[in-house]
Design a protein around this nucleic acid. Structure first.
Length: 884
RNA sequence: GGGGGUAUAGCUCAGUUGGUUAGAGCGAUACGUUUACACCGUAUAGGUCCACAGUUCGAAUCUGUGUGCCCCUACCA
């Protein structure tokens, strides 16, 4: 007798133990092995500072499901785990914690600050890895990587040097988002926007050599000190005469040109724009087109510098704004001031309004890298699932901008560029230089900045496998098979990996890109920290267990787009896990020690067993198809229905007769089949709910028709083709199920209590009668019937309930139990429903165009439908008649 | 402003190339403890498939327009 299972499943008792068991047997580790086919997935490395949210819970579970599935199919499956140093995010958090202690990175200095950063990384990075474990991820821990690891840093250095030497990395002057309080550049991702009520000031600028003025509108008057042009639209007749002339800039006295550019919108403001290339991104672009000078008029703290007229020097930009307006008004050059609502970018950290600021940054020239990446998506080497994301990917690549890779941070890979104080040239190399490569001066210093985090994570398909060194691992595992990630990082990450992969290997880094749905709350809002509407997967796990979290997350995740989740949804997963547990408990209770399991002997199997086996096989086929096309939610659905609707509701229920019976041989046959099927079910479900399936499987006796490795996670995944199927018998059993359902429905609608035994007589074809009589024991039990008989010549007993199905009529004598009026209503309602359908079908069949144009099989199908309906209607009407 | 998506039962979603009487889970309702499971069983109710127009023998499915919602991206001096 197998040890009995507890009456409900408590995940906490098993999960940690099972995970240790898997690790103990090294089941998640893959070594390169030319005799086996690899299956590789690269885990998108989460930020080392972040706490895993439901988006990870969903997306990573999907990856784990795929990897576990392929592992069971015999592939040398490997899921590469790791974390990303996340430059800005991490540094922000560490600086915040320093600020609480009254310290700052400046007060600590670069070296000591770095130590703090690493301490932080070790603490929080470790927490994430703990979460991987809690979620049951079968990643290869021996290959755990971090973007700042020595090997990965070497790869960053290599690609930088290579691109630099190829002339693809250059230093350029651009505008960055400058935080004047924190005195640092910020990436676009670190900005928020705020709506403010401000004004739009109209300034009159005198046109040189005339008495005319040209009026410009601005929201930032203080930037006029940096103006180097006024622009108008080339087609704007109002200003045709001014183009080519010059303007005397008020307060400053400088002469600046009036230029024509299509960027200007004639209908906005006055149709003329002051151009300040050093303080506005659009103006900067326009300035480049017209060779305008960039005049930076501010300090790093956002105050006016020495390039502005004396009386404004040192003023904060907002004070200067008021003063400029006042000065212009006094000069009579303020045409008007109108109230204006606008949105301004603010720093996520300091909440200060961002000032666009001119600075020198390092860039990667992207055009030549993008071209092969476009081709790969177009020729199908790289596939997107769902395909619509290909458009997003291509759209970005076709309009690609150069990539700014320098960041004014201390956490990250320091830019391997040395500036020469003598000749001002740049030196780079794989080792730190001691002299300038160009003039041999030893007066060189390294760039203070670090590289964008994505400049290391774009190497994720390469660097963890040993690149740039020659590496067998890389040869074996590259390219990976699937990349599963969120759509918002298609540009930041996916496209860049493709580009660099093609550049250094000449081959895409993965063949399939599967984009996971965005996880939202029930109102359709994206989970976000500020809204606080997120679901913590760890809290779900604590309440319902990991399998429940995984199953529900996958089941709710549609193929594309977004998914709406609420914590309550996970109850369903918990119930499902418990259902499987209990079904197994029931079956194991019938596995006696002296009962040897029999190999399947087709000749001995009963109808229900053959149906159940067929269901298993069909489900295996559907699940395989669903997984192969990344429809993981569909696979989860199939597993659910196989277990609940198939195995529990019908498989076990039908078996109860035999299990309660006195025939040990029959019992042995049935138990053997059920154990065989349960084993198959556990295999099918293992990738999505690995814990409960493993726990049950370990307790399940070995059925001789299955393999029996040490763990379910490496047991063979069921294949439809190799599983027994009995289509004809399965169809027969479906007729039995149909009859049972019809009887249940009739009695329930008549209000007969479920336990009250009834007699049932079925009039049907002799073929079906044989089937029904042969299965009468099952039918009696399942429909709670006392006496049962089926035959072609049975006549309708007097007062009875009627259940009409395909090819039969079931009579249930129920004297005193039926409410005649109610029964009549039920039957007439059914007649009405069927008549409506019939009418539609007859109209269709009566139409000449349908008869002549519809394909033969559709025609035949429709005709058959009509005949069926007519038969059902005839029975219904006859029975309605008999009820009077 | 540009790009993309989506609209099916009270809720969350299936519905794969147009072709049985549009499905599931949750929720609701009724009855019920029967060799596992009340985290259960059986049954029932609930849908003009967003609107309008079109293509077709036939449209939830394809096309157009409108409306609502969502996402990405750029934001206007």
């Amino acid at each position: 007798m197998t040890e009995p299972l507890a009456s409900s499943y408590d995940p906490k008792l098993y999960e940690s133990k099972l995970y240790d068991f898997w690790l103990h047997h090294h089941l998640f580790h893959a070594e390169q092995d030319p005799s086996r086919k690899p299956y590789t997935i690269l885990m998108p490395p989460p930020n080392v500072t972040s706490y895993l949210h439901m988006g990870h819970g969903t997306g990573y579970t999907m990856q784990d499901m795929l990897v576990r599935w392929k592992r069971m199919q015999g592939f040398n499956a490997m899921w590469l785990p790791g974390t990303d140093h996340a430059g800005i995010a991490t540094q922000m958090m560490v600086e915040k914690s320093l600020a609480e202690a009254g310290e700052s990175r400046q007060s600590l200095g670069r070296e000591r600050f770095n130590i703090k950063l690493w301490e932080w990384k070790d603490k929080y990075g470790g927490m994430i890895l703990e979460q991987f474990r809690s979620m049951g991820f079968s990643c290869d821990w021996d290959r755990l990587s971090f973007t700042l690891d020595p090997q990965l840093s070497l790869a960053v250095r290599r690609i930088f040097v290579d691109l630099f030497e190829a002339g693809l990395i250059y230093r350029g002057e651009r505008l960055v988002n400058w935080d004047p309080v924190l005195k640092t550049a910020l990436s676009d991702d670190e900005l928020e926007s705020k709506e403010i009520h401000s004004s739009l000031w109209h300034f009159k600028y005198p046109v040189e050599g005339t008495d005319a003025f040209i009026t410009v509108a601005t929201t930032r008057p203080e930037t006029m000190f940096g103006d180097t042009a006024v622009a108008v639209h080339p087609d704007d007749e109002r200003y045709q005469a001014f183009v080519g002339k010059q303007v005397r800039l008020p307060l400053v006295g400088r002469l600046i040109p009036i230029v024509a550019d299509t960027y200007v919108k004639s209908e906005f403001g006055t149709g003329a724009v002051k151009i300040t290339p050093a303080h506005d991104p659009n103006d900067f672009e326009l300035g480049k087109r017209h060779n305008l000078a960039n005049i930076d008029i501010m300090t790093d703290a956002g105050a006016m510098n020495d390039l502005v007229p004396e009386k404004f020097r040192g003023l904060d930009r907002f004070v200067a704004r008021k003063e400029v307006v006042r000065a212009m008004r006094e000069l009579g050059l303020l045409d008007k001031e109108e109230a204006y609502k606008t949105t301004v970018p603010i720093s996520e950290r300091s909440k200060e309004i961002i000032e666009p600021r001119l600075s020198k940054q390092w860039y990667v020239s992207m055009k030549s890298l993008a071209t092969p990446a476009v081709a790969a998506a177009n020729d199908g080497t790289l596939r997107f699932h769902p395909d619509l994301w290909k458009k997003t990917y291509l759209h970005w690549l076709e309009n690609i901008q150069d990539w700014c890779i320098s960041r004014q941070l201390w956490w990250g890979h320091r830019i391997p560029i040395w500036y020469c104080d003598q000749c001002h040239e740049h030196t780079t190399g794989m080792t730190d230089p001691s002299v300038c490569k160009h003039c041999s001066s030893s007066e060189i210093h390294q760039d203070e900045d670090v590289l964008d985090t994505w400049f290391s994570s774009w190497l994720w398909p390469l660097s963890p496998f040993g690149w740039p060194e020659k590496s067998n691992d890389l040869d074996y595992f590259y390219p990976s098979d699937a990349l599963v990630t969120a759509p918002e990082i298609i540009f930041l990450w996916v496209a860049r990996m493709v580009m660099v992969g093609l550049k250094v290997r000449g081959e895409v880094p993965f063949k399939d890109v599967f984009l996971t749905p965005t996880v939202c709350d029930k109102q359709g809002r994206k989970f976000s920290k500020t809204l606080g509407n997120g679901i913590d997967p760890l809290a779900v796990i604590a309440e319902h267990g990991t399998d429940a979290m995984r199953f529900t997350a996958v089941q709710l995740a549609p193929i594309g787009g977004r998914t709406r989740m609420a914590v309550e949804d996970f109850e369903a997963g918990g119930r499902f896990v418990n259902k499987l547990w209990n079904a197994s408990r029931f079956l194991l209770g019938h596995v006696q020690a002296d009962l040897a399991l029999k190999p399947l002997n087709h000749a001995e199997l009963d109808l229900a067993s053959k149906w159940l086996l067929t269901e298993l096989s069909l489900a295996a086929g559907r699940i395989d198809k669903a997984l192969s096309t990344y429809r993981l939610n569909e696979a989860a659905d199939q597993i659910y229905h196989l277990i609940w609707g198939g195995f529990c509701d019908w498989g076990l229920e039908a078996a109860k007769n035999t299990l309660a019976g006195a025939d040990p041989a029959a019992k042995q046959r049935v138990v053997s089949v059920l154990v065989y099927v349960l084993d198959g079910i556990l295999r099918l479900a293992s990738p999505v709910m690995p814990f409960v399936t493993e726990e049950i499987w370990q307790k399940l006796p070995h059925h001789p028709d299955w393999d029996r490795p040490v763990s379910l996670t490496i047991a063979a995944y069921p294949k439809q083709e190799t599983l027994p199927q009995f289509p004809a018998e399965a169809e027969q059993w479906r007729s039995v199920q149909d009859l049972v359902a019809a009887v249940r429905s009739a009695r329930s609608q008549a209000g007969v209590p479920p336990k009250t035994p009834l007699n049932t007589w079925v009039r049907t074809t002799s073929e079906l009668a044989t089937l029904f009589n042969g299965a009468s024991a099952d039918i009696k039990r399942l429909a709670v019937i006392d006496q049962f008989n089926a035959g072609p010549d049975l006549s309708r007993p007097g007062q009875c309930l009627v259940a009409i199905g395909r090819g039969y009529e079931a009579y249930i004598p129920a004297d005193g139990l039926i409410d005649i009026a109610k029964e009549r209503t039920r039957l007439s309602t059914e007649v009405g429903r069927l008549e409506k359908i019939l009418k539609g079908l007859e109209a269709k069949l009566g139409s000449a165009s349908f008869a002549s144009r519809a394909p033969a099989d559709v025609l035949e199908q429709t005709t058959q439908q009509r005949d069926n309906l007519n038969m059902q209607l005839a029975s219904l009407r006859a029975n309605l008649e008999a009820l009077t």
